[in-house]
């Protein structure tokens, strides 16, 4: 670990000032401190924001939710409103990490978490994300867990978050506060695909701080759920995952929100799957046909050739679980 200074911000202003001067925000610390130990992250200044008043879950309008950035994963998962309105969020959170980590890690930190690419986390390996221009060891290395969607020749690392997949599916908005005031960023625009600058991961400007993630009000209530496929039963990042939210009325699918995890450089929204579902009647055949589009554009690597097919099956299974039949 490299030496650093640490200060706890007493209020928003103090935090933003420190952030503007180059301080790194730390809340639960479950990602940043790990990476500091591996010297992947070498911040000079840590700004502890954990006492800022960003710990509320608020219902906004008809079925909207605003989850404060400092709400712990465990708190968000257990929140009655989250459970009732968006089980997909609770499930994604509860299938993440371990109980200990969920008690520390925050919602803001969760969507900021960095990739699990082992070459990124090994400072002796080439990694454009960690050290721009050094190359990508994963591209032709061991890449079983890596992305098949949204990749570039510069980076094939997966975004590891589960709940971010639910947020992507539900078209959430990220609220940020910075030196220039408040901004709202559509979730689809918040996390960046690597392109030629994999070191740039979020659409945050200098010193900006996430204050909340908002799930927009949906006119029609959604039935939702999250499926995570992984080698072991607990405490592992997804090989593939699917967040699905549907509204079915009169036997017809009126709303469909679908996104996939474990496969993209960012949580992967699946508009082609959604389009295939809207206006149709639920059936096993429909789920299979819609899921056929889940891996459109996939570029598998040496060790993750199984992922496109597994992704389709994951999406199909979760459509069936949420949408019924069989």
């Amino acid at each position: 670990m490299h030496p650093f200074t640490y200060a706890k911000a007493a209020d928003m202003r103090e935090a933003l000032n420190a952030g503007w001067r180059g301080g790194r925000y730390v809340a639960g610390g479950t990602t940043l401190v790990d990476l500091m130990r591996e010297t992947v992250e070498r911040p000079d200044v840590l700004v502890d924001i954990s006492s800022l008043p960003l710990r509320e879950v608020v219902v906004t309008g008809r079925g909207g939710l605003r989850i404060g950035a400092l709400v712990r994963m465990a708190e968000a998962a257990a929140h009655p409103k989250v459970r009732v309105l968006y089980p997909v969020i609770s499930e994604a959170l509860e299938l993440s990490a371990s109980a200990q980590l969920r008690n520390m890690a925050t919602i803001g930190g969760n969507i900021m978490q960095r990739t699990r690419c082992t070459y990124f986390r090994d400072v002796t390996a080439a990694c454009n994300k960690r050290e721009p221009g050094s190359g990508c060891a994963a591209l032709h290395g061991y890449n079983r867990s890596h992305a098949i969607l949204g990749t570039s020749d510069h980076c094939v690392a997966t975004h590891p978050s589960d709940v971010a997949v639910a947020f992507a599916a539900l078209e959430a908005t990220v609220h940020v506060l910075g030196p220039d005031g408040e901004r709202r960023i559509a979730f689809a625009d918040f996390l960046l695909r690597p392109g030629s600058t994999p070191n740039r991961e979020q659409a945050l400007r200098k010193g900006e701080l996430i204050t909340a993630v908002e799930i927009p009000a949906h006119a029609r209530p959604l039935k939702s759920g999250y499926l995570k496929v992984r080698d072991r039963q607990s405490y592992e990042f997804a090989l593939t995952s699917a967040a699905v939210a549907l509204h079915v009325s009169g036997g017809v699918i009126r709303e469909a929100k679908v996104a996939a995890g474990g496969v993209g450089t960012v949580p992967w929204k699946l508009p082609a799957v959604e389009r295939h579902l809207i206006g149709e009647r639920p059936s096993d055949r429909l789920w299979a046909e819609a899921a056929e589009h889940a891996a459109d554009g996939a570029r598998p690597l040496t060790h993750n050739g199984f992922k496109p097919e597994l992704l389709k099956r994951t999406v199909e299974r979760q459509l069936r679980t949420v949408g019924g039949t069989k």
């Binding site: 082992t118 072991r232 607990s234 592992e236 990042f237």
Partner: peptide, 18 residues
């Protein structure tokens, strides 16, 4: 010759659930 999963997140051992 690099061991790429030299940590307990990537080298999987059974959890209680397993």
């Amino acid at each position: 010759g690099r061991i790429v999963n030299a940590n307990l997140a990537d080298y999987l051992v059974p959890t209680h659930a397993d």
